[in-house]
Amino acid sequence: MLYFIADLLALGAINAIMAVGLNLQYGQAGILNFTYYTFVAIGAYIGAVTTMGHPPVPASEETFILQWNLPWPVALVLAGAVAGVLGLFMVLVVIRRLRSDYLAIVTVSLGFIVWDLITNYVPLFNGANGLFNVPYILNGATASEITYTLEVFGVAMVVLAVCVWVVRSIFRSPYGRVLRAIREDEVVAASFGKATTSSRVWAFVLGCVMAGLAGALLVFYVNAWNPQGFLAEESFILMAAIVIGGPGNYWGAVLGTFVFVELLSEIERYLPNFGNGALVGAGRAVLIGIVLIVVIRFRPDGLIPERWLRWYRVPAGGGQGGAAGSQSRGEPRRRLGWPWLGQRSEI
């Protein structure tokens, strides 16, 4: 039980990093990235191949590039950097010319291409078999399972804190307001002289860096990674969790990810298998789909709307100017309770 909670905490912190990063891309910059998990995977692979050295078990015949033996903090940073560079490359190719929904298709397609290459080109990351025996970080090789889990949790919390701090700074800065303005209406933002393309590019790249960090931590924690770990479905579920939790608001994103990505899959693991063997997993996905559609239908801002972060800082009738101030002007302050009946606005 204790281990279960520790495991939940460690994975929760790692998932929260992904949530914060994806939320920066979707919730703040309005880029629908349906292949976020590809960047997590890149981070995981880079984290693995830069710490593994030569194949730890020679007989295992693992083949992969680099085979470096770096200390893990360096590998972590490197994983974030590579994911960021890949994200930069990808976003530069597509962002200028495409409407948001075609952009979503292109992200899925690019993710599939990367998946296909990694799965079938064995020398890169050992193909479909994936990497295993990734070394533990810290004193994980000797520590007990639960100690190691808590250590990973600690490291992940530090990384998470840095990511949240970055996103918070962005959220409150003029750059954050530019991003949200672009998300609402790119043409208007551009006509105010805002550099719409470069703003979105950097938000996207930062989100990818966070994915890479989360992926490296994940591979340090679970010690193995293969292409089954980043199917398109993973990205979709992550995106669904963000939308349910409340995009634009990192608390909502973190909560949504915790409940829908993690808690459900952990509970699923402890449920007995019945029916045709896949009933529980399928039921979880059906549940996510139904909740997603119901939330979009009846609570389009997600369970924790973006405005929750704003109303306590923006007094009614006044404000700090910009979109936040003008929106809340004159609005009754009844949303101090559970604001089920709050004003609806699109995500």
Binding site: L32, A104, A240, V243, N276, A278, V286, I296
Partner: peptide, 27 residues
Amino acid sequence: SRTLILLICTVGLSFIVQNAIVMIWGP
């Protein structure tokens, strides 16, 4: 609603249909 929202809804629908198939007919 914006296109983006509808697109996300279709993803949710995809989850439901695909996994309902798993539930009914098996994997």
